[in-house]
Design a protein around this nucleic acid. Structure first.
Length: 460
DNA sequence: GTAGGGTTAG
Protein backbone atom coordinates (compact mmCIF):
# COMPACT_ATOMS: atom_id res chain seq x y z
CA UNK A 1 0.00 0.00 0.00
CA UNK A 2 2.74 2.37 1.02
CA UNK A 3 4.68 1.63 -2.20
CA UNK A 4 1.72 2.35 -4.40
CA UNK A 5 1.27 5.64 -2.62
CA UNK A 6 4.95 6.52 -3.17
CA UNK A 7 4.73 5.62 -6.81
CA UNK A 8 1.70 7.80 -7.24
CA UNK A 9 3.44 10.65 -5.50
CA UNK A 10 6.57 10.22 -7.62
CA UNK A 11 4.39 10.40 -10.70
CA UNK A 12 2.81 13.54 -9.36
CA UNK A 13 6.25 15.00 -8.73
CA UNK A 14 7.29 14.08 -12.27
CA UNK A 15 4.27 15.86 -13.72
CA UNK A 16 5.28 18.96 -11.75
CA UNK A 17 8.90 18.68 -12.84
CA UNK A 18 7.87 18.22 -16.48
CA UNK A 19 5.65 21.26 -16.56
CA UNK A 20 8.30 23.42 -14.90
CA UNK A 21 10.93 22.13 -17.31
CA UNK A 22 8.65 22.96 -20.21
CA UNK A 23 8.47 26.52 -18.91
CA UNK A 24 12.29 26.49 -18.66
CA UNK A 25 12.06 27.01 -14.91
CA UNK A 26 14.77 24.55 -14.07
CA UNK A 27 15.56 25.97 -10.65
CA UNK A 28 11.96 25.55 -9.55
CA UNK A 29 11.96 22.01 -10.95
CA UNK A 30 15.01 21.24 -8.82
CA UNK A 31 13.27 22.68 -5.75
CA UNK A 32 10.31 20.37 -6.36
CA UNK A 33 12.69 17.40 -6.46
CA UNK A 34 14.50 18.47 -3.28
CA UNK A 35 11.14 18.87 -1.52
CA UNK A 36 10.07 15.47 -2.85
CA UNK A 37 13.20 13.81 -1.47
CA UNK A 38 12.62 15.55 1.87
CA UNK A 39 9.20 13.92 2.21
CA UNK A 40 10.61 10.56 1.22
CA UNK A 41 10.01 10.36 -2.53
CA UNK A 42 12.65 8.91 -4.82
CA UNK A 43 13.23 10.53 -8.20
CA UNK A 44 13.04 7.81 -10.86
CA UNK A 45 14.28 7.36 -14.42
CA UNK A 46 11.44 9.55 -15.72
CA UNK A 47 12.40 12.40 -13.41
CA UNK A 48 16.01 12.29 -14.56
CA UNK A 49 15.12 11.92 -18.24
CA UNK A 50 12.89 14.97 -18.03
CA UNK A 51 15.68 16.94 -16.39
CA UNK A 52 18.30 15.79 -18.90
CA UNK A 53 16.17 16.81 -21.85
CA UNK A 54 15.46 20.20 -20.29
CA UNK A 55 19.07 20.90 -19.32
CA UNK A 56 20.25 19.96 -22.80
CA UNK A 57 17.68 22.27 -24.32
CA UNK A 58 18.03 25.25 -22.00
CA UNK A 59 21.62 25.18 -20.76
CA UNK A 60 23.74 22.85 -22.84
CA UNK A 61 24.94 19.34 -23.35
CA UNK A 62 27.41 19.47 -20.45
CA UNK A 63 24.60 20.36 -18.07
CA UNK A 64 22.70 17.35 -19.43
CA UNK A 65 25.74 15.18 -18.79
CA UNK A 66 26.04 16.30 -15.20
CA UNK A 67 22.46 15.18 -14.62
CA UNK A 68 23.40 11.82 -16.15
CA UNK A 69 26.12 11.52 -13.52
CA UNK A 70 23.72 12.49 -10.76
CA UNK A 71 21.37 9.83 -12.08
CA UNK A 72 24.06 7.15 -12.05
CA UNK A 73 25.18 8.20 -8.55
CA UNK A 74 21.61 7.76 -7.39
CA UNK A 75 21.76 4.19 -8.69
CA UNK A 76 19.35 4.68 -11.57
CA UNK A 77 20.31 3.23 -14.93
CA UNK A 78 19.89 5.35 -18.04
CA UNK A 79 17.57 4.00 -20.72
CA UNK A 80 17.01 4.61 -24.41
CA UNK A 81 15.07 7.81 -23.66
CA UNK A 82 18.02 9.16 -21.65
CA UNK A 83 20.35 8.64 -24.59
CA UNK A 84 17.88 10.00 -27.11
CA UNK A 85 17.65 13.19 -25.09
CA UNK A 86 21.44 13.50 -24.95
CA UNK A 87 21.81 12.80 -28.68
CA UNK A 88 19.15 15.41 -29.45
CA UNK A 89 21.03 17.83 -27.19
CA UNK A 90 24.30 17.19 -28.99
CA UNK A 91 22.53 17.76 -32.32
CA UNK A 92 21.12 21.06 -31.10
CA UNK A 93 24.56 22.26 -30.12
CA UNK A 94 26.09 21.04 -33.39
CA UNK A 95 28.33 18.39 -31.92
CA UNK A 96 28.38 15.64 -34.51
CA UNK A 97 31.15 13.54 -32.98
CA UNK A 98 29.40 13.71 -29.62
CA UNK A 99 26.22 12.36 -31.25
CA UNK A 100 28.13 9.43 -32.67
CA UNK A 101 29.93 8.77 -29.38
CA UNK A 102 26.64 8.75 -27.51
CA UNK A 103 25.14 6.36 -30.01
CA UNK A 104 28.11 3.99 -29.55
CA UNK A 105 27.96 4.38 -25.80
CA UNK A 106 24.31 3.40 -25.90
CA UNK A 107 25.10 0.28 -27.91
CA UNK A 108 27.95 -0.64 -25.55
CA UNK A 109 25.57 -0.42 -22.63
CA UNK A 110 23.29 -2.83 -24.50
CA UNK A 111 20.54 -0.31 -24.72
CA UNK A 112 18.58 -1.00 -27.89
CA UNK A 113 18.14 2.15 -30.02
CA UNK A 114 14.53 2.85 -30.96
CA UNK A 115 13.10 4.68 -33.96
CA UNK A 116 13.70 8.01 -32.21
CA UNK A 117 17.38 7.27 -31.74
CA UNK A 118 17.61 6.68 -35.48
CA UNK A 119 15.48 9.70 -36.30
CA UNK A 120 17.69 11.92 -34.19
CA UNK A 121 20.87 10.51 -35.68
CA UNK A 122 19.51 10.97 -39.20
CA UNK A 123 18.53 14.53 -38.39
CA UNK A 124 22.01 15.09 -37.01
CA UNK A 125 23.70 13.98 -40.24
CA UNK A 126 21.40 16.18 -42.30
CA UNK A 127 22.13 19.11 -40.05
CA UNK A 128 25.83 18.64 -40.66
CA UNK A 129 25.38 18.60 -44.40
CA UNK A 130 25.93 14.87 -44.71
CA UNK A 131 22.85 13.68 -46.60
CA UNK A 132 24.52 10.45 -47.73
CA UNK A 133 25.21 9.32 -44.18
CA UNK A 134 21.71 10.38 -43.18
CA UNK A 135 20.27 8.27 -45.96
CA UNK A 136 22.36 5.34 -44.78
CA UNK A 137 20.70 5.66 -41.37
CA UNK A 138 17.33 5.52 -43.09
CA UNK A 139 18.36 2.35 -44.95
CA UNK A 140 19.50 0.92 -41.65
CA UNK A 141 16.05 1.55 -40.21
CA UNK A 142 14.45 -0.34 -43.10
CA UNK A 143 17.04 -3.13 -42.92
CA UNK A 144 16.52 -3.66 -39.20
CA UNK A 145 12.79 -3.69 -39.82
CA UNK A 146 12.16 -1.04 -37.19
CA UNK A 147 8.72 0.40 -37.74
CA UNK A 148 9.02 3.97 -38.93
CA UNK A 149 7.30 6.95 -37.44
CA UNK A 150 5.75 9.69 -39.56
CA UNK A 151 8.48 11.97 -38.16
CA UNK A 152 11.02 9.76 -39.94
CA UNK A 153 9.62 10.92 -43.28
CA UNK A 154 9.35 14.50 -42.12
CA UNK A 155 12.99 14.48 -41.09
CA UNK A 156 13.93 12.98 -44.46
CA UNK A 157 11.98 15.58 -46.42
CA UNK A 158 13.35 18.40 -44.28
CA UNK A 159 16.90 17.11 -44.52
CA UNK A 160 16.71 16.84 -48.30
CA UNK A 161 15.35 20.39 -48.57
CA UNK A 162 17.97 21.83 -46.23
CA UNK A 163 20.75 20.16 -48.19
CA UNK A 164 19.58 21.54 -51.51
CA UNK A 165 17.73 18.48 -52.74
CA UNK A 166 14.31 20.14 -52.93
CA UNK A 167 13.45 18.22 -56.08
CA UNK A 168 14.15 14.88 -54.39
CA UNK A 169 12.13 15.98 -51.39
CA UNK A 170 9.20 16.74 -53.67
CA UNK A 171 9.51 13.37 -55.39
CA UNK A 172 9.69 11.57 -52.05
CA UNK A 173 6.63 13.47 -50.84
CA UNK A 174 4.63 12.51 -53.92
CA UNK A 175 5.63 8.88 -53.85
CA UNK A 176 4.96 8.59 -50.11
CA UNK A 177 1.50 10.00 -50.71
CA UNK A 178 0.89 7.40 -53.40
CA UNK A 179 1.83 4.74 -50.87
CA UNK A 180 -0.72 5.97 -48.40
CA UNK A 181 1.35 8.40 -46.32
CA UNK A 182 -0.91 11.12 -45.00
CA UNK A 183 1.06 14.37 -44.79
CA UNK A 184 0.69 16.26 -41.53
CA UNK A 185 0.71 20.00 -41.07
CA UNK A 186 4.39 19.82 -40.15
CA UNK A 187 5.12 17.98 -43.41
CA UNK A 188 3.53 20.80 -45.39
CA UNK A 189 5.37 23.43 -43.35
CA UNK A 190 8.66 21.69 -44.02
CA UNK A 191 8.01 21.56 -47.76
CA UNK A 192 6.77 25.14 -47.94
CA UNK A 193 9.86 26.34 -46.10
CA UNK A 194 12.15 24.33 -48.36
CA UNK A 195 10.46 25.61 -51.49
CA UNK A 196 10.55 29.23 -50.28
CA UNK A 197 14.22 28.89 -49.42
CA UNK A 198 15.12 27.55 -52.83
CA UNK A 199 13.31 30.42 -54.51
CA UNK A 200 10.27 28.46 -55.64
CA UNK A 201 7.62 30.62 -54.04
CA UNK A 202 5.04 29.66 -56.66
CA UNK A 203 5.26 25.97 -55.88
CA UNK A 204 5.16 26.83 -52.18
CA UNK A 205 1.89 28.63 -52.80
CA UNK A 206 0.46 25.53 -54.48
CA UNK A 207 1.35 23.52 -51.40
CA UNK A 208 -0.27 26.13 -49.20
CA UNK A 209 -3.46 25.49 -51.15
CA UNK A 210 -3.01 21.75 -50.93
CA UNK A 211 -2.50 22.09 -47.17
CA UNK A 212 -5.85 23.82 -46.78
CA UNK A 213 -7.62 21.51 -49.24
CA UNK A 214 -6.49 18.46 -47.33
CA UNK A 215 -8.23 19.80 -44.26
CA UNK A 216 -5.31 21.29 -42.32
CA UNK A 217 -5.42 24.71 -40.74
CA UNK A 218 -2.26 26.78 -41.24
CA UNK A 219 -0.56 27.66 -37.97
CA UNK A 220 1.77 30.46 -36.84
CA UNK A 221 4.72 28.62 -38.37
CA UNK A 222 3.04 28.40 -41.77
CA UNK A 223 2.26 32.10 -41.70
CA UNK A 224 5.69 33.32 -40.64
CA UNK A 225 7.35 31.05 -43.21
CA UNK A 226 5.28 32.42 -46.06
CA UNK A 227 5.56 36.00 -44.81
CA UNK A 228 9.36 35.85 -44.63
CA UNK A 229 9.38 34.38 -48.11
CA UNK A 230 7.41 37.35 -49.45
CA UNK A 231 9.74 39.86 -47.79
CA UNK A 232 12.76 38.03 -49.12
CA UNK A 233 11.49 38.33 -52.67
CA UNK A 234 10.45 41.94 -52.12
CA UNK A 235 6.72 41.22 -52.29
CA UNK A 236 6.14 43.56 -49.38
CA UNK A 237 2.41 44.15 -49.74
CA UNK A 238 1.76 40.45 -50.09
CA UNK A 239 3.78 39.81 -46.93
CA UNK A 240 1.92 42.49 -45.01
CA UNK A 241 -1.38 40.95 -46.11
CA UNK A 242 -0.26 37.64 -44.67
CA UNK A 243 0.73 39.35 -41.44
CA UNK A 244 -2.70 40.98 -41.23
CA UNK A 245 -4.36 37.61 -41.69
CA UNK A 246 -2.08 36.14 -39.05
CA UNK A 247 -3.09 38.88 -36.67
CA UNK A 248 -6.79 38.41 -37.37
CA UNK A 249 -6.52 34.75 -36.63
CA UNK A 250 -4.78 35.41 -33.33
CA UNK A 251 -1.37 33.95 -34.18
CA UNK A 252 0.56 37.02 -33.08
CA UNK A 253 0.80 36.11 -29.43
CA UNK A 254 4.37 37.34 -29.10
CA UNK A 255 6.59 40.07 -30.49
CA UNK A 256 8.40 37.89 -33.04
CA UNK A 257 6.34 38.51 -36.14
CA UNK A 258 5.92 42.18 -35.23
CA UNK A 259 9.68 42.63 -35.12
CA UNK A 260 10.12 41.04 -38.54
CA UNK A 261 7.51 43.33 -40.03
CA UNK A 262 8.73 46.47 -38.27
CA UNK A 263 12.33 45.90 -39.33
CA UNK A 264 11.30 45.33 -42.90
CA UNK A 265 9.31 48.60 -42.83
CA UNK A 266 12.25 50.43 -41.31
CA UNK A 267 14.68 49.09 -43.88
CA UNK A 268 12.41 50.13 -46.74
CA UNK A 269 11.94 53.59 -45.30
CA UNK A 270 8.31 53.18 -44.18
CA UNK A 271 8.94 54.74 -40.80
CA UNK A 272 5.37 55.80 -39.99
CA UNK A 273 4.10 52.26 -40.42
CA UNK A 274 7.05 50.83 -38.47
CA UNK A 275 6.07 53.23 -35.69
CA UNK A 276 2.52 51.89 -35.67
CA UNK A 277 3.61 48.27 -35.30
CA UNK A 278 6.23 49.03 -32.68
CA UNK A 279 3.76 51.17 -30.79
CA UNK A 280 1.57 48.12 -30.67
CA UNK A 281 4.41 46.01 -29.26
CA UNK A 282 4.89 48.57 -26.50
CA UNK A 283 1.22 48.78 -25.54
CA UNK A 284 0.39 45.11 -26.06
CA UNK A 285 1.97 43.91 -22.85
CA UNK A 286 4.33 41.50 -24.62
CA UNK A 287 7.42 41.07 -22.52
CA UNK A 288 10.21 43.01 -24.20
CA UNK A 289 13.28 40.89 -24.60
CA UNK A 290 16.55 42.30 -25.86
CA UNK A 291 15.72 41.73 -29.53
CA UNK A 292 12.33 43.42 -29.50
CA UNK A 293 13.87 46.17 -27.41
CA UNK A 294 16.62 46.63 -30.01
CA UNK A 295 14.03 46.85 -32.78
CA UNK A 296 12.26 49.75 -31.04
CA UNK A 297 15.55 51.32 -30.03
CA UNK A 298 16.68 51.19 -33.64
CA UNK A 299 13.54 53.01 -34.77
CA UNK A 300 14.19 55.89 -32.36
CA UNK A 301 17.83 56.07 -33.38
CA UNK A 302 17.05 56.02 -37.09
CA UNK A 303 14.51 58.76 -36.60
CA UNK A 304 17.09 60.81 -34.73
CA UNK A 305 15.02 60.75 -31.53
CA UNK A 306 18.05 60.20 -29.35
CA UNK A 307 16.31 61.55 -26.24
CA UNK A 308 13.56 58.97 -26.56
CA UNK A 309 16.15 56.32 -27.28
CA UNK A 310 18.09 57.15 -24.13
CA UNK A 311 14.94 57.22 -22.01
CA UNK A 312 13.95 53.81 -23.34
CA UNK A 313 17.43 52.45 -22.68
CA UNK A 314 17.46 53.87 -19.17
CA UNK A 315 14.08 52.35 -18.35
CA UNK A 316 14.99 49.00 -19.83
CA UNK A 317 18.25 48.79 -17.95
CA UNK A 318 16.51 49.72 -14.73
CA UNK A 319 14.05 46.92 -15.44
CA UNK A 320 16.94 44.48 -15.59
CA UNK A 321 17.32 44.15 -19.36
CA UNK A 322 20.96 43.84 -20.38
CA UNK A 323 22.02 45.62 -23.54
CA UNK A 324 24.04 43.64 -26.06
CA UNK A 325 26.36 44.32 -28.97
CA UNK A 326 23.38 45.13 -31.19
CA UNK A 327 22.17 47.79 -28.77
CA UNK A 328 25.60 49.43 -28.81
CA UNK A 329 25.94 49.29 -32.59
CA UNK A 330 22.49 50.82 -32.99
CA UNK A 331 23.29 53.60 -30.51
CA UNK A 332 26.59 54.45 -32.18
CA UNK A 333 24.91 54.59 -35.57
CA UNK A 334 22.23 56.85 -34.08
CA UNK A 335 24.85 59.14 -32.55
CA UNK A 336 26.64 59.41 -35.90
CA UNK A 337 23.41 60.15 -37.73
CA UNK A 338 22.77 63.05 -35.38
CA UNK A 339 26.33 64.32 -35.63
CA UNK A 340 27.41 63.39 -32.10
CA UNK A 341 30.74 61.97 -33.15
CA UNK A 342 32.47 62.76 -29.91
CA UNK A 343 29.91 60.85 -27.92
CA UNK A 344 30.02 58.02 -30.45
CA UNK A 345 33.78 57.75 -30.05
CA UNK A 346 33.47 57.74 -26.26
CA UNK A 347 30.86 55.01 -26.48
CA UNK A 348 33.11 52.97 -28.76
CA UNK A 349 36.05 53.28 -26.41
CA UNK A 350 33.86 52.33 -23.47
CA UNK A 351 32.74 49.28 -25.41
CA UNK A 352 36.30 48.14 -25.94
CA UNK A 353 36.95 48.47 -22.23
CA UNK A 354 33.82 46.57 -21.21
CA UNK A 355 34.80 43.71 -23.45
CA UNK A 356 32.34 43.80 -26.36
CA UNK A 357 34.75 42.16 -28.72
CA UNK A 358 32.60 41.92 -31.83
CA UNK A 359 32.02 45.63 -32.25
CA UNK A 360 33.20 45.71 -35.84
CA UNK A 361 29.74 46.75 -37.00
CA UNK A 362 29.82 49.71 -34.64
CA UNK A 363 33.25 50.82 -35.84
CA UNK A 364 32.09 50.50 -39.43
CA UNK A 365 29.09 52.63 -38.58
CA UNK A 366 31.43 55.22 -37.12
CA UNK A 367 33.72 55.46 -40.14
CA UNK A 368 30.65 55.57 -42.35
CA UNK A 369 29.31 58.51 -40.36
CA UNK A 370 32.63 60.31 -40.59
CA UNK A 371 32.87 59.73 -44.34
CA UNK A 372 29.35 60.92 -44.96
CA UNK A 373 30.07 64.18 -43.18
CA UNK A 374 33.32 64.68 -45.09
CA UNK A 375 35.67 64.00 -42.14
CA UNK A 376 37.93 61.88 -44.32
CA UNK A 377 41.16 62.30 -42.38
CA UNK A 378 39.47 61.44 -39.12
CA UNK A 379 37.86 58.40 -40.81
CA UNK A 380 41.21 57.29 -42.27
CA UNK A 381 42.84 57.62 -38.89
CA UNK A 382 40.19 55.47 -37.25
CA UNK A 383 40.25 52.97 -40.12
CA UNK A 384 43.99 52.54 -39.79
CA UNK A 385 43.78 52.07 -36.04
CA UNK A 386 41.14 49.35 -36.29
CA UNK A 387 42.66 45.96 -35.49
CA UNK A 388 39.83 44.13 -37.26
CA UNK A 389 38.48 45.14 -40.65
CA UNK A 390 36.10 43.42 -43.03
CA UNK A 391 34.84 44.09 -46.55
CA UNK A 392 32.31 46.59 -45.20
CA UNK A 393 35.11 48.62 -43.59
CA UNK A 394 36.99 48.74 -46.90
CA UNK A 395 33.87 49.45 -48.94
CA UNK A 396 32.95 52.31 -46.65
CA UNK A 397 36.37 53.92 -46.86
CA UNK A 398 36.70 53.43 -50.61
CA UNK A 399 33.29 54.97 -51.13
CA UNK A 400 34.07 57.84 -48.79
CA UNK A 401 37.36 58.65 -50.53
CA UNK A 402 35.62 58.63 -53.90
CA UNK A 403 32.93 60.97 -52.63
CA UNK A 404 35.70 63.35 -51.60
CA UNK A 405 37.15 62.85 -55.10
CA UNK A 406 40.34 61.38 -53.61
CA UNK A 407 40.46 58.71 -56.28
CA UNK A 408 44.15 57.96 -56.03
CA UNK A 409 43.85 57.17 -52.34
CA UNK A 410 40.69 55.17 -53.05
CA UNK A 411 42.41 53.08 -55.71
CA UNK A 412 45.38 52.46 -53.44
CA UNK A 413 43.05 51.21 -50.73
CA UNK A 414 41.05 49.13 -53.19
CA UNK A 415 44.23 47.44 -54.39
CA UNK A 416 45.43 46.67 -50.89
CA UNK A 417 42.00 45.26 -50.17
CA UNK A 418 42.16 43.02 -53.23
CA UNK A 419 45.66 41.91 -52.32
CA UNK A 420 44.33 40.85 -48.95
CA UNK A 421 41.79 38.64 -50.68
CA UNK A 422 38.89 40.75 -49.48
CA UNK A 423 36.01 41.22 -51.85
CA UNK A 424 34.03 44.43 -51.90
CA UNK A 425 30.89 45.34 -53.79
CA UNK A 426 31.19 45.50 -57.55
CA UNK A 427 29.50 48.90 -57.58
CA UNK A 428 32.21 50.29 -55.28
CA UNK A 429 34.97 49.04 -57.59
CA UNK A 430 33.14 50.71 -60.46
CA UNK A 431 33.06 54.06 -58.65
CA UNK A 432 36.85 53.97 -58.28
CA UNK A 433 37.52 53.12 -61.93
CA UNK A 434 35.04 55.69 -63.23
CA UNK A 435 36.44 58.28 -60.85
CA UNK A 436 40.02 57.69 -62.00
CA UNK A 437 38.91 58.02 -65.62
CA UNK A 438 37.00 61.22 -64.95
CA UNK A 439 40.23 62.74 -63.63
CA UNK A 440 42.14 61.66 -66.69
CA UNK A 441 43.98 58.93 -64.79
CA UNK A 442 43.27 56.33 -67.48
CA UNK A 443 46.48 54.44 -66.91
CA UNK A 444 45.70 54.02 -63.21
CA UNK A 445 42.14 53.00 -64.06
CA UNK A 446 43.36 50.30 -66.41
CA UNK A 447 45.81 49.04 -63.78
CA UNK A 448 43.05 48.71 -61.20
CA UNK A 449 40.82 46.95 -63.70
CA UNK A 450 43.45 44.40 -64.59
CA UNK A 451 44.23 43.75 -60.93
CA UNK A 452 40.53 43.09 -60.33
CA UNK A 453 40.47 40.67 -63.25
CA UNK A 454 43.58 38.95 -61.97
CA UNK A 455 42.12 38.56 -58.51
CA UNK A 456 38.98 37.06 -60.03
CA UNK A 457 41.05 34.46 -61.88
CA UNK A 458 43.02 33.64 -58.77
CA UNK A 459 40.10 33.35 -56.42
CA UNK A 460 37.53 31.54 -58.51
C1' DG B 1 11.97 13.85 -29.92
C1' DT B 2 10.71 16.24 -36.88
C1' DA B 3 8.69 22.43 -39.03
C1' DG B 4 8.98 28.77 -38.52
C1' DG B 5 10.28 33.51 -36.43
C1' DG B 6 12.73 39.02 -34.59
C1' DT B 7 17.66 43.24 -33.71
C1' DT B 8 23.28 46.52 -36.05
C1' DA B 9 27.14 48.95 -40.50
C1' DG B 10 28.67 49.69 -46.64
Amino acid sequence: MRRIKDKLSTRLMNVCVASLCKAKQLEKAEIVIVDGIRIGLQPDVVTYNTLIAAYCRVVGIDAGYSILHRMKDAGINPDVITYNALIAGATRYSLLSKCLDLFDEMLEMRILPDIWSYNTLMNCFFKFGKPDEAYRVFQDILLKDISVHSATFNILINGLCMNGYTENALMLFRSLKCHGFIPQLVTYNILIHGLCKSGRGNVAREFLNELVESGHIPNAITYTTVMKCCFRYRQFEEGLKIFAEMRNKGYTYDAFAYCTVASMLLKTGRITEANEYLGYIITSGFTLDIVSFNTIFNLYCKEGQLDNAYTLLYEAENGGLESDKYTHAILIDGLCRTGNFQEAQQQLNRMSVTGFDSNLVAWNSFINGLCKTGQLDYATHIFESMDMKDSVSYSTMVRGLCQARRFRAASKLLLSCIRGGMNILKSDKRIVIDGLRSCGLTHEARKVQSKIQMAKLLHY
